[in-house]
Nucleic acid binder design. Structure first.
Lengths: 124, 124
DNA sequence: GGTAGTAGGTACTTTTTGGTAACCATTGAT
DNA sequence: ATCAATGGTTACCAAAAAGTACCTACTACC
Protein backbone atom coordinates (compact mmCIF):
# COMPACT_ATOMS: atom_id res chain seq x y z
CA UNK A 1 0.00 0.00 0.00
CA UNK A 2 1.25 3.41 -0.98
CA UNK A 3 1.75 5.53 2.09
CA UNK A 4 0.95 9.17 1.79
CA UNK A 5 2.13 12.07 3.90
CA UNK A 6 1.01 15.66 3.82
CA UNK A 7 4.52 17.05 4.04
CA UNK A 8 8.13 16.16 4.55
CA UNK A 9 8.00 16.54 8.31
CA UNK A 10 5.38 13.83 8.57
CA UNK A 11 7.42 11.57 6.34
CA UNK A 12 10.40 12.06 8.63
CA UNK A 13 8.29 11.49 11.73
CA UNK A 14 7.13 8.25 10.16
CA UNK A 15 10.74 7.08 10.36
CA UNK A 16 12.02 8.42 13.69
CA UNK A 17 8.68 8.77 15.46
CA UNK A 18 8.41 5.48 17.33
CA UNK A 19 8.59 5.50 21.09
CA UNK A 20 11.99 3.79 21.18
CA UNK A 21 13.44 4.68 17.80
CA UNK A 22 15.34 7.79 18.89
CA UNK A 23 17.11 5.81 21.58
CA UNK A 24 17.84 2.91 19.26
CA UNK A 25 19.23 5.27 16.65
CA UNK A 26 21.42 6.92 19.22
CA UNK A 27 22.94 3.69 20.45
CA UNK A 28 23.47 2.55 16.90
CA UNK A 29 24.98 5.94 16.13
CA UNK A 30 27.71 5.22 18.62
CA UNK A 31 28.68 1.87 17.22
CA UNK A 32 27.12 -1.28 15.75
CA UNK A 33 25.23 -3.21 18.41
CA UNK A 34 23.91 -6.69 18.93
CA UNK A 35 20.31 -7.30 19.95
CA UNK A 36 21.33 -8.33 23.45
CA UNK A 37 23.44 -5.18 23.82
CA UNK A 38 20.44 -3.02 22.98
CA UNK A 39 18.31 -4.94 25.42
CA UNK A 40 20.86 -4.41 28.14
CA UNK A 41 21.08 -0.70 27.45
CA UNK A 42 17.31 -0.26 27.25
CA UNK A 43 16.01 -2.62 29.92
CA UNK A 44 12.48 -1.24 29.73
CA UNK A 45 11.84 -2.23 26.12
CA UNK A 46 10.21 -5.58 25.50
CA UNK A 47 11.55 -8.05 22.96
CA UNK A 48 8.47 -7.71 20.85
CA UNK A 49 8.71 -3.97 20.53
CA UNK A 50 12.48 -4.02 20.08
CA UNK A 51 12.24 -6.45 17.18
CA UNK A 52 9.31 -4.54 15.75
CA UNK A 53 11.03 -1.18 15.77
CA UNK A 54 14.29 -2.59 14.47
CA UNK A 55 12.38 -4.24 11.60
CA UNK A 56 10.70 -0.96 10.80
CA UNK A 57 13.97 0.94 10.83
CA UNK A 58 15.46 -1.77 8.64
CA UNK A 59 12.66 -1.70 6.10
CA UNK A 60 12.91 2.09 6.07
CA UNK A 61 16.56 1.71 5.10
CA UNK A 62 17.86 3.39 8.24
CA UNK A 63 19.72 0.43 9.72
CA UNK A 64 21.34 -2.78 8.48
CA UNK A 65 20.88 -6.20 9.99
CA UNK A 66 23.80 -8.62 9.84
CA UNK A 67 23.49 -12.25 10.90
CA UNK A 68 26.55 -14.36 11.56
CA UNK A 69 26.29 -18.07 12.22
CA UNK A 70 24.03 -20.57 10.50
CA UNK A 71 22.50 -22.21 13.56
CA UNK A 72 21.39 -20.72 16.86
CA UNK A 73 22.62 -19.05 18.93
CA UNK A 74 22.83 -16.45 16.19
CA UNK A 75 24.85 -13.31 16.41
CA UNK A 76 22.78 -10.48 14.99
CA UNK A 77 24.31 -7.04 14.63
CA UNK A 78 22.66 -3.78 13.66
CA UNK A 79 24.30 -0.61 12.39
CA UNK A 80 23.30 2.62 10.69
CA UNK A 81 23.11 2.87 6.92
CA UNK A 82 24.25 6.00 5.11
CA UNK A 83 20.63 7.12 5.11
CA UNK A 84 20.51 6.53 8.83
CA UNK A 85 23.63 8.58 9.37
CA UNK A 86 22.09 11.36 7.29
CA UNK A 87 19.55 11.80 10.09
CA UNK A 88 22.33 12.71 12.49
CA UNK A 89 22.04 16.48 12.27
CA UNK A 90 18.29 16.44 12.71
CA UNK A 91 18.50 14.17 15.74
CA UNK A 92 21.20 16.29 17.31
CA UNK A 93 19.18 19.45 16.84
CA UNK A 94 16.05 17.84 18.21
CA UNK A 95 18.06 16.58 21.13
CA UNK A 96 19.49 19.99 21.90
CA UNK A 97 16.14 21.73 21.55
CA UNK A 98 14.40 19.17 23.76
CA UNK A 99 17.07 19.22 26.44
CA UNK A 100 17.08 22.97 26.55
CA UNK A 101 13.31 23.00 26.85
CA UNK A 102 13.32 20.37 29.59
CA UNK A 103 15.80 22.45 31.54
CA UNK A 104 13.43 25.41 31.40
CA UNK A 105 10.14 23.65 32.16
CA UNK A 106 10.02 22.63 35.83
CA UNK A 107 7.50 19.82 35.33
CA UNK A 108 9.64 18.10 32.74
CA UNK A 109 12.66 15.92 33.13
CA UNK A 110 15.02 13.89 30.99
CA UNK A 111 15.12 10.66 32.93
CA UNK A 112 18.23 8.67 32.22
CA UNK A 113 19.79 10.23 29.24
CA UNK A 114 20.06 7.21 27.03
CA UNK A 115 20.58 8.89 23.77
CA UNK A 116 21.61 12.48 24.14
CA UNK A 117 23.01 12.31 20.62
CA UNK A 118 25.97 14.39 21.70
CA UNK A 119 28.01 11.37 20.69
CA UNK A 120 26.64 11.48 17.16
CA UNK A 121 27.55 15.13 17.08
CA UNK A 122 31.19 14.33 17.68
CA UNK A 123 31.28 11.62 15.02
CA UNK A 124 29.58 13.68 12.35
CA UNK B 1 1.98 15.07 36.70
CA UNK B 2 5.66 15.38 35.92
CA UNK B 3 6.34 14.14 32.44
CA UNK B 4 9.54 12.29 31.85
CA UNK B 5 11.43 11.68 28.64
CA UNK B 6 14.44 9.50 28.03
CA UNK B 7 16.20 12.06 25.90
CA UNK B 8 15.86 15.39 24.19
CA UNK B 9 14.56 13.94 20.95
CA UNK B 10 11.57 12.46 22.73
CA UNK B 11 10.90 15.74 24.45
CA UNK B 12 10.88 17.47 21.07
CA UNK B 13 8.67 14.80 19.55
CA UNK B 14 6.26 15.37 22.41
CA UNK B 15 5.78 18.88 21.09
CA UNK B 16 5.74 18.48 17.30
CA UNK B 17 4.65 14.84 17.15
CA UNK B 18 0.90 15.11 16.76
CA UNK B 19 -0.71 14.09 13.50
CA UNK B 20 -1.59 17.65 12.50
CA UNK B 21 0.95 19.69 14.42
CA UNK B 22 3.57 19.95 11.69
CA UNK B 23 0.99 21.33 9.31
CA UNK B 24 -0.43 23.71 11.87
CA UNK B 25 3.03 24.97 12.70
CA UNK B 26 3.76 25.51 9.06
CA UNK B 27 0.66 27.54 8.40
CA UNK B 28 1.30 29.55 11.53
CA UNK B 29 4.89 29.96 10.43
CA UNK B 30 3.70 31.85 7.39
CA UNK B 31 1.52 34.29 9.24
CA UNK B 32 -0.92 34.46 12.16
CA UNK B 33 -4.11 32.59 11.35
CA UNK B 34 -7.64 32.42 12.60
CA UNK B 35 -9.30 29.13 13.50
CA UNK B 36 -11.52 29.25 10.45
CA UNK B 37 -8.50 29.90 8.22
CA UNK B 38 -6.79 26.81 9.53
CA UNK B 39 -9.94 24.80 8.99
CA UNK B 40 -10.18 26.00 5.43
CA UNK B 41 -6.57 25.14 4.73
CA UNK B 42 -6.78 21.72 6.38
CA UNK B 43 -10.26 20.54 5.47
CA UNK B 44 -9.60 17.01 6.73
CA UNK B 45 -9.04 17.95 10.35
CA UNK B 46 -12.04 17.85 12.66
CA UNK B 47 -12.97 20.70 14.99
CA UNK B 48 -12.26 18.62 18.03
CA UNK B 49 -8.76 17.61 17.01
CA UNK B 50 -7.92 21.07 15.74
CA UNK B 51 -8.84 22.63 19.07
CA UNK B 52 -7.06 19.85 20.91
CA UNK B 53 -3.80 20.21 19.07
CA UNK B 54 -3.87 23.98 19.21
CA UNK B 55 -4.44 23.80 22.97
CA UNK B 56 -1.49 21.45 23.34
CA UNK B 57 0.76 23.67 21.27
CA UNK B 58 -0.41 26.61 23.34
CA UNK B 59 0.24 24.92 26.68
CA UNK B 60 3.64 23.87 25.37
CA UNK B 61 4.38 27.52 24.74
CA UNK B 62 4.74 27.10 20.97
CA UNK B 63 1.83 29.27 19.89
CA UNK B 64 -0.16 32.18 21.27
CA UNK B 65 -3.93 32.47 21.29
CA UNK B 66 -5.48 35.90 20.93
CA UNK B 67 -9.20 36.50 21.34
CA UNK B 68 -10.79 39.71 20.16
CA UNK B 69 -14.41 40.50 20.86
CA UNK B 70 -16.32 39.87 24.05
CA UNK B 71 -19.36 38.16 22.60
CA UNK B 72 -19.65 35.63 19.81
CA UNK B 73 -18.78 35.43 17.02
CA UNK B 74 -15.30 35.68 18.45
CA UNK B 75 -12.22 36.31 16.42
CA UNK B 76 -9.53 33.96 17.62
CA UNK B 77 -6.05 34.26 16.17
CA UNK B 78 -3.04 32.03 16.66
CA UNK B 79 0.59 32.80 16.01
CA UNK B 80 4.00 31.39 16.83
CA UNK B 81 5.82 32.35 20.01
CA UNK B 82 9.56 32.89 20.02
CA UNK B 83 9.89 29.31 21.24
CA UNK B 84 7.74 28.19 18.34
CA UNK B 85 9.90 30.10 15.89
CA UNK B 86 12.96 28.45 17.41
CA UNK B 87 11.67 25.16 16.01
CA UNK B 88 11.95 26.54 12.50
CA UNK B 89 15.33 25.09 11.59
CA UNK B 90 14.42 21.66 12.85
CA UNK B 91 11.15 21.62 10.94
CA UNK B 92 12.83 22.79 7.77
CA UNK B 93 15.48 20.10 8.02
CA UNK B 94 12.91 17.42 8.73
CA UNK B 95 10.89 18.69 5.81
CA UNK B 96 13.84 18.55 3.45
CA UNK B 97 14.92 15.10 4.63
CA UNK B 98 11.38 13.75 4.33
CA UNK B 99 10.77 15.21 0.91
CA UNK B 100 14.05 13.92 -0.39
CA UNK B 101 13.26 10.49 0.96
CA UNK B 102 9.76 10.51 -0.52
CA UNK B 103 11.22 11.37 -3.90
CA UNK B 104 13.47 8.32 -3.70
CA UNK B 105 10.98 5.77 -2.39
CA UNK B 106 8.49 4.84 -5.10
CA UNK B 107 5.76 3.73 -2.69
CA UNK B 108 5.73 7.03 -0.87
CA UNK B 109 4.18 10.31 -1.79
CA UNK B 110 3.74 13.76 -0.34
CA UNK B 111 0.06 14.33 -0.98
CA UNK B 112 -0.82 17.98 -1.07
CA UNK B 113 2.15 19.76 0.27
CA UNK B 114 0.47 21.74 2.98
CA UNK B 115 3.46 22.68 4.97
CA UNK B 116 6.64 22.24 3.05
CA UNK B 117 8.25 24.65 5.48
CA UNK B 118 10.19 26.23 2.65
CA UNK B 119 8.30 29.37 3.60
CA UNK B 120 9.65 29.26 7.13
CA UNK B 121 13.09 28.87 5.61
CA UNK B 122 12.78 32.15 3.80
CA UNK B 123 11.52 34.04 6.84
CA UNK B 124 14.15 32.68 9.25
C1' DG C 1 18.87 -33.25 32.78
C1' DG C 2 18.24 -28.45 34.13
C1' DT C 3 19.44 -23.68 33.28
C1' DA C 4 20.98 -19.60 31.01
C1' DG C 5 21.95 -17.05 26.76
C1' DT C 6 20.67 -15.78 22.06
C1' DA C 7 17.05 -14.14 18.63
C1' DG C 8 12.75 -14.13 17.77
C1' DG C 9 7.33 -15.17 17.12
C1' DT C 10 2.25 -15.02 18.49
C1' DA C 11 -2.00 -14.07 21.02
C1' DC C 12 -4.07 -11.03 23.77
C1' DT C 13 -4.81 -6.68 26.38
C1' DT C 14 -4.19 -1.93 27.46
C1' DT C 15 -3.23 2.80 26.46
C1' DT C 16 -3.04 6.54 23.49
C1' DT C 17 -4.58 8.92 19.73
C1' DG C 18 -7.68 10.37 16.39
C1' DG C 19 -12.40 10.67 14.43
C1' DT C 20 -17.90 11.28 14.47
C1' DA C 21 -21.77 13.38 15.66
C1' DA C 22 -24.30 16.18 18.27
C1' DC C 23 -24.64 20.17 21.02
C1' DC C 24 -24.14 25.49 23.00
C1' DA C 25 -24.04 30.60 22.38
C1' DT C 26 -23.92 34.57 19.59
C1' DT C 27 -24.26 37.55 15.48
C1' DG C 28 -25.59 38.96 10.97
C1' DA C 29 -27.82 38.07 6.69
C1' DT C 30 -32.00 36.55 4.10
C1' DA D 1 -37.97 32.97 11.75
C1' DT D 2 -34.36 30.42 9.93
C1' DC D 3 -29.84 29.69 8.41
C1' DA D 4 -24.71 30.13 8.02
C1' DA D 5 -20.51 31.49 10.34
C1' DT D 6 -17.66 31.57 14.41
C1' DG D 7 -15.25 28.92 18.13
C1' DG D 8 -15.80 25.95 20.78
C1' DT D 9 -17.50 21.40 24.11
C1' DT D 10 -19.00 16.70 25.14
C1' DA D 11 -19.93 11.71 24.83
C1' DC D 12 -18.97 8.02 22.37
C1' DC D 13 -16.14 4.93 18.95
C1' DA D 14 -12.33 3.22 16.11
C1' DA D 15 -7.71 2.59 15.03
C1' DA D 16 -2.97 2.60 16.15
C1' DA D 17 0.75 1.85 19.22
C1' DA D 18 2.72 -0.29 22.94
C1' DG D 19 2.94 -3.79 26.67
C1' DT D 20 2.38 -8.73 28.76
C1' DA D 21 2.86 -13.31 28.72
C1' DC D 22 4.11 -17.26 26.83
C1' DC D 23 6.04 -19.97 23.05
C1' DT D 24 9.98 -21.88 19.57
C1' DA D 25 14.79 -23.40 18.61
C1' DC D 26 19.46 -24.10 19.32
C1' DT D 27 23.94 -24.12 22.18
C1' DA D 28 26.90 -24.37 25.99
C1' DC D 29 27.67 -25.11 30.75
C1' DC D 30 27.62 -27.79 35.00
Amino acid sequence: MKQSYNNGVEATLGVIGGKWKPQLLCHLGNRPQRTCDLRRELPAISQKVLTQQLRELESDGIINRHISGERAPFKVTYDLTDLGRSLGQILVQMSVWGEQRASQVPDMEIANDHGGFSNILTTN
